[in-house]
Design a protein around this nucleic acid. Structure first.
Length: 102
DNA sequence: ACTGAGCGA
């Protein structure tokens, strides 16, 4: 399961992210999206976990927690066309979901 | 006091 981690402090890097999620389960990949131009962090990242329920657990536990004096946000990343959002206005006309406002 | 909304390439 892919997880979207937002509002990260700019000090946080990939390994920090990894250290946060590892205790909850096997982490397939953890990457902070660093700005390709400047190389600095963009303040958000992605974590992919092997076990789905461990991921869910990690999300609940890590969401809105303070990391490096900043309250981070953890949520599922890019829901496909499953009913993650039930009957939300985010229908999938394009196979994923709208990139305009999401 | 780099810089604060956001879903990578």
């Amino acid at each position: 399961m892919k997880i979207y981690v937002s509002n990260l402090s700019f000090n946080v890097q990939d390994e920090e992210l990894l250290n946060l999620f590892t205790p909850f389960g096997a982490v397939a990949s953890a990457k902070v999206i660093t700005d390709r131009e400047t190389g600095r962090s963009r303040g958000f990242g992605f974590v992919e976990m092997e076990d789905d329920n461990a991921a869910q657990e990690a999300m609940q536990q890590l969401d809105k927690t303070s990391v490096d004096n900043r309250s981070i946000g953890v949520s599922e990343a890019r829901p496909k066309s499953d009913r993650s959002f039930g009957n939300s206005p985010f229908k999938s006309d394009n196979g994923g979901y709208n990139k305009r406002k999401w």
